[in-house]
């Protein structure tokens, strides 16, 4: 994980940073370690005097899982330091020869969060349409004439199918109140 805060002295800076970039998978180990500590702390601070049925209580499995996470974090770190690398997943639409496009990922996540916030005040049809249009925009579609129409159509049809045909209630919002 190359962060701006730990910039080393100038002469070794480039070296260290490229080392960190090479070994960014160690970040995964750190996360697994943190997760393991979290699970273990939660398990060990658990208060289990309430009627435990059977010899194995609610603490046992979390302790095993937590310990497993710690062991795996260590083993993975060892593997990475020895030169092992997780292979990034390929796919039909994936071009791994170019560096990751973080802007699109952030934009897409932002659009998704925005839609999540808007779903209750505006209702599903509007928020869903904004989600589709926003996501298509983030992914590079710029057809102002076509994108919003597709988004609105998809959102309305989905709303009707779920809300009226499948009986899964979705919030209609003010728009559905008017229609």
């Amino acid at each position: 994980m190359t962060t701006q805060t730990d910039i080393p002295p100038a002469e070794t800076g480039g070296d260290q940073r490229s080392w960190l970039r090479e070994h960014s998978e160690l970040g995964v180990c750190a996360l697994l370690l943190a997760l393991g500590v979290l699970v273990l702390t939660d398990a060990l601070t658990m208060d289990v005097d309430i009627a435990q049925r059977g010899p194995v209580g609610p603490k046992t499995v979390p302790i095993v899982v937590g310990a497993g996470l710690l062991v795996i974090a260590a083993l993975l770190a060892l593997d990475v330091l020895r030169g092992g690398r997780g292979q990034a997943e390929g796919g039909e639409d994936i071009d791994l020869s170019e560096p990751a496009d973080w802007r699109t990922v952030l934009l897409l996540s932002g659009v998704f969060l925005g839609a999540a916030v808007l779903i209750e005040p505006l209702g599903f049809p509007v928020a869903g349409a904004l989600l589709f249009w926003g996501a298509a925009f983030a992914l590079g579609s710029r057809r102002i004439d076509r994108d919003p129409l597709i988004a609105a159509g998809l959102s309305l049809v989905t709303y009707t199918v779920f809300n009226n045909l499948l009986g899964v209630p979705l919030p209609g919002g003010p728009l559905m109140g008017v229609l």
Binding site: I94, D95, A100, W102, V105, L139
Partner: peptide, 8 residues
């Protein structure tokens, strides 16, 4: 998200 980061 993964495809978005590496879209062909």
């Amino acid at each position: 998200l993964w495809v978005a980061a590496h879209l062909r």
